[in-house]
Simulated assay, not measured.
Amino acid sequence: MSSPQLPYERVRDEVARRAGLLWEVASALHADPEPAFGEHRAAALLTDELERAGFAVERGVAGLPTAFAARSGQGRPAVALLMEYDALPGLGHACGHNLIAAAGLGAALVADAVLAGTGGSVLAVGTPAEEGGGGKALEVAAGVFDDVDAALMFHPGVYDWVRAPLTAQEQYRVGFRGRAAHPTGSPTEGVDALAALIELFNVLSSLGRRLPQGSHVQGIITHGGTATNIVPEYAEGRFGLRALTTGALDDLAARLRTAAEGVASATGTAVEVERATVRYEHFRDSGVLSGRFAGHLDRAGITLTPPVPGVYLGSSDIGNVSGRVPAIHPFVAIMDDSGSDHTPEFAAAAASERGRRVLTAVVEALACTAVDVLRDADLRTRAWEGHRAGAGAP
Protein backbone atom coordinates (compact mmCIF):
# COMPACT_ATOMS: atom_id res chain seq x y z
CA MET A 1 0.00 0.00 0.00
CA SER A 2 1.53 3.31 -1.06
CA SER A 3 1.61 6.33 1.26
CA PRO A 4 -0.45 9.40 0.38
CA GLN A 5 1.36 12.48 -0.90
CA LEU A 6 2.62 14.31 2.17
CA PRO A 7 3.26 18.07 2.40
CA TYR A 8 6.95 18.09 3.30
CA GLU A 9 7.69 21.27 1.36
CA ARG A 10 5.11 23.16 3.37
CA VAL A 11 6.63 21.77 6.57
CA ARG A 12 9.99 23.15 5.48
CA ASP A 13 8.48 26.58 4.81
CA GLU A 14 6.71 26.64 8.19
CA VAL A 15 9.91 25.66 10.00
CA ALA A 16 11.86 28.41 8.25
CA ARG A 17 9.20 30.93 9.24
CA ARG A 18 9.46 29.96 12.92
CA ALA A 19 13.20 29.25 13.15
CA GLY A 20 14.02 32.58 14.79
CA LEU A 21 11.27 32.25 17.39
CA LEU A 22 12.28 28.70 18.28
CA TRP A 23 15.89 29.69 18.82
CA GLU A 24 14.72 32.54 21.04
CA VAL A 25 12.75 30.01 23.11
CA ALA A 26 15.73 27.65 23.36
CA SER A 27 18.02 30.52 24.32
CA ALA A 28 15.61 31.89 26.93
CA LEU A 29 15.32 28.48 28.57
CA HIS A 30 19.08 28.05 28.49
CA ALA A 31 19.63 31.43 30.17
CA ASP A 32 17.09 30.70 32.92
CA PRO A 33 17.58 27.08 34.06
CA GLU A 34 15.11 25.63 36.55
CA PRO A 35 15.45 22.29 38.37
CA ALA A 36 13.09 19.31 38.32
CA PHE A 37 9.50 20.16 39.31
CA GLY A 38 10.50 23.84 39.62
CA GLU A 39 10.25 24.72 35.92
CA HIS A 40 7.50 27.32 36.37
CA ARG A 41 8.89 29.97 34.03
CA ALA A 42 9.76 27.39 31.38
CA ALA A 43 6.25 25.93 31.46
CA ALA A 44 4.73 29.40 31.26
CA LEU A 45 6.89 30.34 28.26
CA LEU A 46 5.96 27.18 26.36
CA THR A 47 2.26 27.23 27.15
CA ASP A 48 1.98 30.91 26.23
CA GLU A 49 3.37 30.14 22.76
CA LEU A 50 0.98 27.22 22.35
CA GLU A 51 -2.04 29.26 23.43
CA ARG A 52 -1.00 32.04 21.06
CA ALA A 53 -1.13 29.47 18.24
CA GLY A 54 -4.64 28.35 19.21
CA PHE A 55 -3.87 25.20 21.20
CA ALA A 56 -6.17 24.39 24.11
CA VAL A 57 -3.81 24.16 27.08
CA GLU A 58 -4.42 22.12 30.22
CA ARG A 59 -1.94 23.02 32.94
CA GLY A 60 -1.05 20.90 35.96
CA VAL A 61 -1.78 17.56 34.31
CA ALA A 62 -1.09 14.43 36.36
CA GLY A 63 -1.16 16.64 39.46
CA LEU A 64 2.18 18.20 38.51
CA PRO A 65 2.21 22.03 38.62
CA THR A 66 4.80 22.36 35.84
CA ALA A 67 3.31 19.72 33.51
CA PHE A 68 0.88 20.51 30.72
CA ALA A 69 -0.90 19.06 27.70
CA ALA A 70 -1.89 21.31 24.81
CA ARG A 71 -4.18 20.00 22.07
CA SER A 72 -5.16 21.18 18.63
CA GLY A 73 -7.78 19.23 16.75
CA GLN A 74 -9.97 16.41 18.01
CA GLY A 75 -9.93 12.68 18.35
CA ARG A 76 -7.79 10.07 16.66
CA PRO A 77 -5.36 9.72 15.07
CA ALA A 78 -3.31 11.67 17.58
CA VAL A 79 0.40 12.37 17.75
CA ALA A 80 2.21 13.69 20.84
CA LEU A 81 5.29 15.92 20.65
CA LEU A 82 7.19 15.77 23.95
CA MET A 83 9.05 18.57 25.68
CA GLU A 84 11.59 18.34 28.50
CA TYR A 85 12.73 21.56 30.20
CA ASP A 86 14.24 20.78 33.59
CA ALA A 87 17.89 21.68 34.18
CA LEU A 88 20.67 20.15 36.24
CA PRO A 89 21.49 21.89 39.55
CA GLY A 90 24.80 23.67 39.19
CA LEU A 91 25.16 22.78 35.49
CA GLY A 92 22.12 24.36 33.87
CA HIS A 93 21.01 22.80 30.59
CA ALA A 94 23.92 20.38 30.43
CA CYS A 95 21.59 17.75 29.01
CA GLY A 96 20.21 20.05 26.31
CA HIS A 97 16.64 20.08 27.50
CA ASN A 98 16.27 23.64 26.24
CA LEU A 99 16.67 22.22 22.72
CA ILE A 100 14.27 19.35 23.42
CA ALA A 101 11.60 21.81 24.57
CA ALA A 102 12.05 24.13 21.59
CA ALA A 103 12.04 21.17 19.18
CA GLY A 104 8.83 19.71 20.60
CA LEU A 105 7.19 23.12 20.57
CA GLY A 106 8.25 23.83 17.01
CA ALA A 107 7.21 20.43 15.67
CA ALA A 108 3.78 20.75 17.28
CA LEU A 109 3.23 24.26 15.88
CA VAL A 110 4.38 23.27 12.40
CA ALA A 111 2.43 20.01 12.22
CA ASP A 112 -0.69 21.83 13.36
CA ALA A 113 -0.23 24.60 10.80
CA VAL A 114 0.26 22.13 7.97
CA LEU A 115 -2.63 19.82 8.89
CA ALA A 116 -5.12 22.27 10.43
CA GLY A 117 -8.67 21.10 9.84
CA THR A 118 -7.77 17.80 8.18
CA GLY A 119 -8.73 15.56 11.13
CA GLY A 120 -6.98 14.06 14.09
CA SER A 121 -5.11 15.98 16.75
CA VAL A 122 -1.67 17.26 17.67
CA LEU A 123 -0.81 17.04 21.36
CA ALA A 124 2.09 19.02 22.81
CA VAL A 125 3.04 17.47 26.17
CA GLY A 126 5.16 19.28 28.74
CA THR A 127 7.07 16.66 30.74
CA PRO A 128 8.87 18.01 33.83
CA ALA A 129 11.60 16.43 35.90
CA GLU A 130 13.21 13.97 33.52
CA GLU A 131 16.38 14.28 35.60
CA GLY A 132 15.24 11.96 38.34
CA GLY A 133 11.66 13.02 39.04
CA GLY A 134 9.94 10.97 36.36
CA GLY A 135 7.37 13.42 35.03
CA LYS A 136 6.59 11.24 32.02
CA ALA A 137 6.14 8.15 34.19
CA LEU A 138 3.62 10.02 36.32
CA GLU A 139 1.84 11.30 33.22
CA VAL A 140 1.63 7.78 31.80
CA ALA A 141 0.08 6.57 35.06
CA ALA A 142 -2.42 9.47 34.93
CA GLY A 143 -3.55 8.50 31.43
CA VAL A 144 -2.08 11.42 29.49
CA PHE A 145 -1.00 9.09 26.66
CA ASP A 146 -4.04 6.80 26.64
CA ASP A 147 -5.49 8.15 23.36
CA VAL A 148 -2.23 8.79 21.50
CA ASP A 149 -0.93 6.90 18.45
CA ALA A 150 2.71 7.96 18.66
CA ALA A 151 5.01 9.92 20.97
CA LEU A 152 7.88 11.78 19.32
CA MET A 153 10.93 13.54 20.75
CA PHE A 154 14.67 13.83 20.21
CA HIS A 155 17.63 14.24 22.53
CA PRO A 156 20.81 16.21 21.83
CA GLY A 157 23.95 14.21 22.42
CA VAL A 158 27.44 13.38 21.23
CA TYR A 159 26.31 10.66 18.80
CA ASP A 160 23.99 10.59 15.79
CA TRP A 161 22.00 7.49 16.70
CA VAL A 162 18.61 6.51 15.33
CA ARG A 163 17.43 5.11 18.64
CA ALA A 164 18.30 5.48 22.29
CA PRO A 165 19.89 2.55 24.15
CA LEU A 166 18.25 3.40 27.47
CA THR A 167 18.04 0.90 30.31
CA ALA A 168 15.58 0.49 33.19
CA GLN A 169 16.43 1.94 36.60
CA GLU A 170 15.08 2.69 40.04
CA GLN A 171 16.44 3.36 43.52
CA TYR A 172 15.68 1.68 46.83
CA ARG A 173 16.06 2.70 50.43
CA VAL A 174 17.18 -0.09 52.77
CA GLY A 175 17.12 0.53 56.51
CA PHE A 176 18.32 -1.84 59.23
CA ARG A 177 17.19 -1.42 62.84
CA GLY A 178 19.10 -2.97 65.74
CA ARG A 179 19.66 -1.98 69.40
CA ALA A 180 21.96 0.70 70.79
CA ALA A 181 24.54 -0.12 73.47
CA HIS A 182 27.95 0.98 74.70
CA PRO A 183 30.54 -0.98 72.66
CA THR A 184 32.77 -1.64 75.68
CA GLY A 185 30.49 -1.21 78.70
CA SER A 186 27.75 -3.54 77.46
CA PRO A 187 28.85 -4.97 74.10
CA THR A 188 26.61 -8.02 74.25
CA GLU A 189 23.49 -5.87 74.60
CA GLY A 190 23.94 -4.15 71.24
CA VAL A 191 22.64 -5.20 67.83
CA ASP A 192 24.77 -3.38 65.26
CA ALA A 193 22.60 -2.05 62.43
CA LEU A 194 25.61 -0.62 60.61
CA ALA A 195 27.32 -4.01 60.58
CA ALA A 196 24.19 -5.44 58.97
CA LEU A 197 24.20 -2.75 56.28
CA ILE A 198 27.89 -3.35 55.55
CA GLU A 199 27.18 -7.05 55.27
CA LEU A 200 24.50 -6.28 52.69
CA PHE A 201 27.12 -4.42 50.64
CA ASN A 202 29.33 -7.53 50.83
CA VAL A 203 26.50 -9.80 49.71
CA LEU A 204 25.62 -7.50 46.82
CA SER A 205 29.26 -7.36 45.76
CA SER A 206 29.29 -11.14 45.51
CA LEU A 207 25.93 -11.12 43.74
CA GLY A 208 27.22 -8.63 41.21
CA ARG A 209 29.61 -11.18 39.75
CA ARG A 210 26.65 -13.37 38.78
CA LEU A 211 24.27 -10.77 37.36
CA PRO A 212 23.34 -10.76 33.67
CA GLN A 213 24.85 -8.21 31.28
CA GLY A 214 23.59 -4.70 31.93
CA SER A 215 22.40 -5.36 35.49
CA HIS A 216 24.18 -3.77 38.41
CA VAL A 217 23.63 -2.31 41.88
CA GLN A 218 25.43 0.77 43.19
CA GLY A 219 24.92 1.78 46.82
CA ILE A 220 25.87 4.45 49.31
CA ILE A 221 25.48 4.71 53.09
CA THR A 222 23.12 7.57 53.92
CA HIS A 223 23.04 7.01 57.70
CA GLY A 224 25.60 5.04 59.67
CA GLY A 225 25.12 5.99 63.31
CA THR A 226 25.50 9.02 65.56
CA ALA A 227 28.69 8.47 67.59
CA THR A 228 31.65 6.09 67.65
CA ASN A 229 30.96 5.06 71.26
CA ILE A 230 27.39 3.92 70.54
CA VAL A 231 26.52 0.72 68.70
CA PRO A 232 24.39 2.04 65.80
CA GLU A 233 20.76 1.17 66.34
CA TYR A 234 19.82 2.35 62.84
CA ALA A 235 21.66 2.37 59.53
CA GLU A 236 20.36 3.16 56.09
CA GLY A 237 21.61 2.85 52.54
CA ARG A 238 20.37 3.94 49.15
CA PHE A 239 20.83 1.60 46.23
CA GLY A 240 20.55 2.38 42.53
CA LEU A 241 19.51 -0.56 40.36
CA ARG A 242 19.87 -0.74 36.57
CA ALA A 243 19.02 -3.49 34.12
CA LEU A 244 18.68 -3.86 30.36
CA THR A 245 14.94 -4.48 30.56
CA THR A 246 12.15 -3.65 32.95
CA GLY A 247 11.63 -7.36 33.61
CA ALA A 248 15.30 -7.78 34.50
CA LEU A 249 14.99 -4.78 36.82
CA ASP A 250 12.10 -6.46 38.64
CA ASP A 251 14.27 -9.55 39.09
CA LEU A 252 17.15 -7.45 40.41
CA ALA A 253 14.88 -5.68 42.90
CA ALA A 254 13.65 -9.05 44.15
CA ARG A 255 17.26 -10.15 44.65
CA LEU A 256 18.01 -7.00 46.63
CA ARG A 257 15.04 -7.65 48.90
CA THR A 258 16.00 -11.30 49.39
CA ALA A 259 19.57 -10.35 50.25
CA ALA A 260 18.46 -7.67 52.73
CA GLU A 261 16.04 -10.02 54.46
CA GLY A 262 18.70 -12.74 54.65
CA VAL A 263 21.18 -10.34 56.24
CA ALA A 264 18.56 -9.19 58.74
CA SER A 265 17.81 -12.78 59.72
CA ALA A 266 21.50 -13.57 60.16
CA THR A 267 22.29 -10.43 62.20
CA GLY A 268 19.18 -10.23 64.37
CA THR A 269 18.13 -6.88 62.90
CA ALA A 270 14.87 -5.73 61.37
CA VAL A 271 14.95 -4.42 57.81
CA GLU A 272 12.78 -2.20 55.65
CA VAL A 273 13.16 -2.14 51.86
CA GLU A 274 11.19 0.41 49.87
CA ARG A 275 11.39 2.00 46.45
CA ALA A 276 12.69 5.55 46.78
CA THR A 277 12.14 6.86 43.24
CA VAL A 278 9.83 6.54 40.27
CA ARG A 279 10.78 3.53 38.17
CA TYR A 280 12.13 4.29 34.71
CA GLU A 281 11.33 1.50 32.26
CA HIS A 282 13.70 0.55 29.45
CA PHE A 283 13.12 2.28 26.12
CA ARG A 284 11.26 0.32 23.44
CA ASP A 285 12.01 1.90 20.08
CA SER A 286 9.40 2.05 17.32
CA GLY A 287 11.64 1.02 14.45
CA VAL A 288 9.20 2.05 11.75
CA LEU A 289 8.82 5.57 13.18
CA SER A 290 12.51 5.98 14.00
CA GLY A 291 13.33 4.97 10.45
CA ARG A 292 10.89 7.54 9.12
CA PHE A 293 12.43 10.29 11.31
CA ALA A 294 15.95 9.31 10.21
CA GLY A 295 14.93 9.54 6.57
CA HIS A 296 13.59 13.04 7.06
CA LEU A 297 16.66 14.16 9.00
CA ASP A 298 18.94 12.80 6.30
CA ARG A 299 17.67 15.53 3.97
CA ALA A 300 19.34 18.04 6.29
CA GLY A 301 22.67 16.22 5.93
CA ILE A 302 22.52 14.46 9.29
CA THR A 303 22.76 10.68 8.96
CA LEU A 304 21.68 8.57 11.91
CA THR A 305 23.17 5.14 12.55
CA PRO A 306 22.28 2.33 14.98
CA PRO A 307 23.85 2.70 18.43
CA VAL A 308 27.18 1.01 19.13
CA PRO A 309 26.43 -2.48 20.51
CA GLY A 310 26.96 -2.74 24.24
CA VAL A 311 27.01 1.03 24.82
CA TYR A 312 24.16 2.30 27.02
CA LEU A 313 23.44 5.93 27.77
CA GLY A 314 21.62 5.76 31.08
CA SER A 315 17.88 5.78 31.62
CA SER A 316 14.96 8.10 30.98
CA ASP A 317 11.25 8.25 31.69
CA ILE A 318 10.60 8.14 27.93
CA GLY A 319 10.89 4.40 28.56
CA ASN A 320 7.57 4.48 30.40
CA VAL A 321 5.92 6.28 27.48
CA SER A 322 7.36 3.76 25.02
CA GLY A 323 5.69 0.98 26.98
CA ARG A 324 2.32 2.64 26.34
CA VAL A 325 2.52 3.89 22.73
CA PRO A 326 4.92 3.69 19.75
CA ALA A 327 7.71 6.16 20.52
CA ILE A 328 10.98 7.53 19.20
CA HIS A 329 13.96 9.04 21.03
CA PRO A 330 16.86 9.50 18.61
CA PHE A 331 20.13 11.14 19.61
CA VAL A 332 21.46 13.97 17.43
CA ALA A 333 24.97 15.26 18.13
CA ILE A 334 25.57 18.88 19.11
CA MET A 335 29.24 18.23 19.93
CA ASP A 336 31.72 15.51 18.97
CA ASP A 337 31.89 12.15 20.69
CA SER A 338 35.01 13.03 22.67
CA GLY A 339 32.73 14.91 25.05
CA SER A 340 29.81 13.99 27.27
CA ASP A 341 26.55 15.41 28.45
CA HIS A 342 26.09 16.52 32.07
CA THR A 343 29.20 18.69 31.71
CA PRO A 344 29.77 22.46 31.40
CA GLU A 345 31.00 21.88 27.85
CA PHE A 346 27.72 20.24 26.86
CA ALA A 347 25.75 23.06 28.46
CA ALA A 348 27.69 25.49 26.24
CA ALA A 349 26.98 23.32 23.18
CA ALA A 350 23.24 23.53 23.91
CA ALA A 351 23.47 27.27 23.18
CA SER A 352 25.95 27.02 20.31
CA GLU A 353 25.58 27.68 16.60
CA ARG A 354 25.74 23.93 15.99
CA GLY A 355 22.93 23.49 18.50
CA ARG A 356 20.91 26.05 16.55
CA ARG A 357 21.43 24.22 13.24
CA VAL A 358 20.50 20.89 14.83
CA LEU A 359 17.35 22.43 16.31
CA THR A 360 16.11 23.62 12.93
CA ALA A 361 16.86 20.29 11.26
CA VAL A 362 15.22 18.28 14.04
CA VAL A 363 12.07 20.42 14.11
CA GLU A 364 11.57 19.72 10.41
CA ALA A 365 12.18 15.98 10.81
CA LEU A 366 9.90 15.71 13.85
CA ALA A 367 7.14 17.71 12.15
CA CYS A 368 7.38 15.59 8.99
CA THR A 369 7.19 12.43 11.09
CA ALA A 370 4.17 13.80 12.98
CA VAL A 371 2.47 14.59 9.66
CA ASP A 372 3.24 11.05 8.51
CA VAL A 373 1.62 9.60 11.62
CA LEU A 374 -1.53 11.66 11.18
CA ARG A 375 -1.89 11.18 7.42
CA ASP A 376 -0.62 7.66 6.80
CA ALA A 377 -2.89 4.93 8.19
CA ASP A 378 -0.54 2.19 6.97
CA LEU A 379 2.34 3.71 8.94
CA ARG A 380 0.22 3.84 12.10
CA THR A 381 -0.81 0.22 11.63
CA ARG A 382 2.79 -0.93 11.26
CA ALA A 383 3.88 1.15 14.24
CA TRP A 384 1.20 -0.36 16.46
CA GLU A 385 1.95 -3.88 15.21
CA GLY A 386 5.59 -3.42 16.14
CA HIS A 387 4.63 -2.01 19.51
CA ARG A 388 2.29 -4.88 20.35
CA ALA A 389 4.95 -7.38 19.31
CA GLY A 390 7.08 -5.94 22.11
CA ALA A 391 10.75 -5.10 22.27
CA GLY A 392 13.65 -6.68 24.09
CA ALA A 393 16.76 -5.03 25.41
CA PRO A 394 17.64 -1.53 24.17
Rank of each mutant, 00 (worst) to 15 (best):
V125Y: 01
R177E: 12
A243C: 11
E353K: 12
T245Y: 02
A36P: 10
E34G: 14
T228W: 07
L197K: 00
A193K: 07
Q213A: 08
F346C: 09
V57K: 12
A62N: 04
G120V: 13
A391C: 14
P183G: 06
P187A: 13
G175E: 10
D160Y: 04
P394R: 06
H282M: 09
P77R: 07
E199N: 05
A195D: 15
V311G: 08
G135K: 06
G119P: 10
A150L: 02
R284L: 15
V358S: 02
I318C: 12
R357I: 03
P33H: 12
D192G: 01
G60F: 08
S322T: 07
G287F: 12
D192Q: 03
Y234L: 15
V321W: 02
V144H: 05
P394M: 06
L200K: 05
P344Y: 09
F293E: 04
E233L: 00
T47Y: 05
S352T: 11
L50C: 08
R357N: 10
L200Q: 01
V110T: 07
T381N: 11
G106C: 05
D48H: 14
G75D: 11
G390L: 10
L256R: 00
R18A: 09
A180C: 07
G355I: 03
L304E: 01
G117H: 03
A391R: 12
T305Q: 13
I302D: 06
F331G: 13
A367P: 01
L138Y: 02
V203L: 07
L241R: 03
L374V: 04
G386Y: 05
C95W: 00
F55V: 00
L289G: 14
Y159F: 13
H182N: 13
A150Q: 03
D378M: 08
H216A: 05
A235P: 05
Y8W: 10
E84T: 09
R255M: 01
P187Y: 12
A107K: 02
A370V: 13
E131N: 13
T305P: 03
H282E: 14
V203T: 10
L256V: 01
R257N: 09
Y234P: 06
A235I: 02
A56F: 01
P7G: 09
T127H: 11
G132V: 02
P35L: 09
T360N: 08
R388Y: 15
P307G: 04
A43H: 01
V217Q: 04
I220R: 10
A19L: 05
G133A: 08
A349N: 09
L6P: 11
R275M: 04
D251K: 07
G90D: 12
E130M: 06
E51S: 15
R357D: 11
T303G: 06
V25P: 10
V278F: 01
